[in-house]
Design a protein around this nucleic acid. Sequence first.
RNA 1: GCGGGUGUAGCUCAACGGUAGAGCUCCAGCCUUCCAAGCUGGCUGUACGGGUUCGAUUCCCGUCACCCGCUCCA
Length: 531
Amino acid sequence: MNANDFPVTLDALAALCKRRGFIFQSSEIYGGINGFWDYGPMGCELKRNIREAWWKAMVRDRDDIVGLDASIIMHPRVWEASGHVGGFSDPMQSCRQCRRMFRADQVAEQLRESAWRRALTDAAATAGADGAVVWNPDAAARWLEKKGAALAPGLLARCREGERIETARLAALLAGFATPEGRPCPACGGELTPPRDFNLMFRTFIGALEDSAGQAYLRPETAQGIFANFLNVLDTARVKIPFGIAQIGKAFRNEINPRNYTFRSREFEQMELEYFIRPGTDAEMHAYWVEERMKWYRSIGLPEGRLSKYVYEPKELAHYASACTDVMYRFPFGTQELEGIAARGDFDLRRHQEYSGKAMEYFDPEKNERFVPHVVEPSAGVDRVALAALCEAYREEWVPKEAGGEPRTAVPGEPLPEGYEVRTVLRFAPVLAPIKAAVFPLLKNRPELVEKAKEVHALLRRRWPVFYDQTGAIGRRYRRQDEIGTPLGITIDFQTLDDGTVTVRDRDTMRQERAPIAELRDRVAAALGEA
RNA sequence: GCGGGUGUAGCUCAACGGUAGAGCUCCAGCCUUCCAAGCUGGCUGUACGGGUUCGAUUCCCGUCACCCGCUCCA
């Protein structure tokens, strides 16, 4: 079995993440809160490394992309323009009896298909002169007492008074079936709430009064902050098309059903680029960004074999989009999206132009023309990348008890071979590792070793996050670092005192080499791939 | 959102209608010349709220969270 196919269970990963301070459930001391997660000392370093790798690749290493950090709460009109409020999110009605949810515009159709509604029509309705349904309330009551009790419990509950059915009330309900306000639940005949805007945005209020005038939203995506600042950046950053604006930040979606550990959370962090292009170059630029982004995922240690692309069919695309490709990763719970790369045309800028009354145009001095740029949007989830990195890094291995043995990937279901023990290790790419190296004195009760180790620690920590540990046997300290994915272990032993060399132990091979302290920084940089 | 299951220490598990225990982890000390060694000591717990009871971790109800299936969803 290929090491990449080691079946990580989310349970095992979540246990390690908690044990070693990567991820905690939010508000755990109060019983937890569904859909929210906290990142501990190791987890926040991991996320920081992911963000910095992205920022470096997208902004620092390029001439054509600039950064932005927009506010989380924006003018409510932003979300009208974007389509997140209003027509885009369909009003919903829910049943007060069975609590099922229905799209308001589909209730009439679903009612025609409804089993209880058909049975009731057969039992108690005739067609009137003008084709309208004429109900016989007494027949309806008889039906409801027998067959209808199981088929339409919601309707029964609405017109029952003690043991008997209030025929007059039933008659009123039946009469209302034809009106939008009186439509019953297609599933049980219960009472539907009025249509309500049901969207995934968290609402809040600006100012002390909680009235509709102050209503605002936590952003459900960071992208709109970029579009809303398009003109500001254009006027100040001296950018020339094609150019991009990049942003990393929190976004919030009130998901119905968060699942799969941190994969779908209600509060999450996005890394988004809006890359503005000349109309007509959409397909070419979209293809370019798909490849750029795939390269980036490989550069942080996600292997080709676990990554894939999902190319949207034309019928799956939003009406304004010309292409969309998702970057997928094979998680333990299935192949899921890390990032979506969409060619959105000029939809967003045009909508903001329409809603704000400001011309969202780019002036091309060479061709002496104005146009609304099109945009390609690579939009990635920091938390999803972090989860993928953890899944990818997690290994259980068999290690020979005798010195100098090489670790082997454990074979699930097979017993531990004689003479081996288990180690859990996170094989992060060095760029993502929360701690780059750990420094140990071989023994803590020899002051000369401790003193030298602290010197080496001080030497390295100026450049990298480096951990110092003198507690417990040396083997135990190596294993602790394995569990947080520290690539290098540096040990000060008695030979160090004689010749100024230390041992450098590699996390993955568990092999050790000696290196002079004078060359240590270069050796560490080389081992981390920074040289 | 629906249905089913689960909830005891950081982890794995035990116990009982009457003072909640073990192993591992963690911390301290001793020891230890390179892969979770040993000895001694120590910290930590019945998810939350209510009810029944002389007494509830145990029985009942509610809430919350987690897991599985369905549903929904970029």
